[in-house]
Computed example of a mutant assay.
Amino acid sequence: MQQVKAVVALAKGEPVTLTTINVPDPGPGEALVKVQSCGVCHTDLHYRQGGINDEFPFLLGHEAAGIVEQVGPDVTDLAPGDFVVLNWRAVCGSCRACHRGEPWYCFATHNATQKMTLAEGDRAGTELTPALGIGAFAEKTLVAAGQCTKVDPSARAAAVGLLGCGVMAGLGAALNTGAVRRGSTVAVIGCGGVGAAAIAGAVLAGASTVVAVDVDDAKLEGARAMGATHLVNSRDTDPVEEIRRLCPPADATGHEGGADVVIDAVGRPETWKQAFYARDLAGTLVLVGVPTPDMKVPDIPLIDVFGRGGALKSSWYGDCLPSRDFPMLVDLYQQGRLDLDAFVSEEIALGDVEAAFEKMETPGQGVLRSVVTL
């Protein structure tokens, strides 16, 4: 057992607390990781606000990279000293999805069995719920060994750790779920961290047109830096009409046009409806923004669903397989072909997480990711 400093959400809506927690030594199938960096993701704010579930207190943080310090007695594919990016898809290998060769849809992913606990105050000994099974706003964290993906140890931790959630979700929404190809036309609605990554993924795949849509001019300028070819502020312009204008049909049939792939990185009924109608005929809609439980699919005539054809998809973690995708993307980063550094807006200390949440909720900040570095 070790005691380390960590950021905890003790109750719904309350500011986070920097406190001391107990981290058990790793048991079977587990690994203890010394955290080097962890991005501040909107999902962490959702946890703090009670928007995920009510299993407080939460040990926040999940976009992390670090060094394996100890492993459990049966762990053979990790060793102390390995540089890893943490993931929340430690595939089981035995569910139906894994058996049919689609482990990125695994529904029995592993987390550490032992619980980390509060170490001080009148709630000492209370079990913590780690965000997405990771809990990496901490000097050290305990995870399932399968949550550790080894990557090039010379890579910058603050950059590659972001593959642990938001950046991978956006890249994968374009590359995996949306299957963007060379010459595709793509629109991305919402240009925060996930949307910016979706733009980068579309560019990496060779899209000919990439339309970025947001209500924040600072985010739109960030999207331009990621490779967007056109910017649309939807406060001023109807995004559906503008996407159709910028991605016209390639033939003379006279239909209204639209993008081959439209990615909704916001996750609200109104943006999903915009994405639905901004597609070209037989186009693909990818929902990667996370809605809240109270949101409903907007009222769309069923004949439009039938008549427009194509595919309506949800992207879970960018439909990634960490063991396949993380090393490849880190290699592209090391080669200068994928600018993960561009997502790191600032590096902060553990005690600055609450301030990072405030920036996240303030328009015009231009912050893609605040990254805690230890």
Rank of each mutant, 00 (worst) to 15 (best):
71 V>E: 11
28 P>R: 13
79 A>M: 03
228 A>M: 06
47 Y>R: 03
8 V>T: 08
66 G>C: 06
78 L>D: 05
101 G>C: 04
306 F>R: 02
81 G>K: 02
196 A>D: 11
313 K>T: 00
267 G>N: 10
170 G>T: 06
54 D>A: 13
13 G>W: 10
73 P>I: 14
311 A>R: 15
64 A>P: 03
330 V>D: 08
53 N>F: 02
253 T>M: 13
136 A>D: 06
92 C>G: 08
229 T>R: 07
72 G>I: 14
200 A>K: 10
214 D>W: 07
45 L>D: 09
117 T>C: 09
371 V>E: 09
276 F>N: 01
246 L>M: 02
258 G>V: 01
237 T>P: 01
147 Q>L: 05
53 N>D: 15
208 S>Q: 14
13 G>F: 09
65 A>Y: 04
147 Q>S: 14
261 V>Q: 07
130 P>F: 06
134 I>P: 01
301 P>Q: 00
138 A>N: 00
250 A>I: 02
266 V>H: 04
136 A>T: 11
69 E>M: 00
216 D>W: 09
268 R>A: 13
4 V>S: 10
356 A>G: 14
285 L>Q: 07
214 D>A: 05
152 D>P: 09
339 D>T: 12
315 S>V: 12
343 F>W: 13
146 G>N: 13
227 G>V: 09
102 E>F: 04
224 R>S: 14
230 H>D: 15
40 V>M: 07
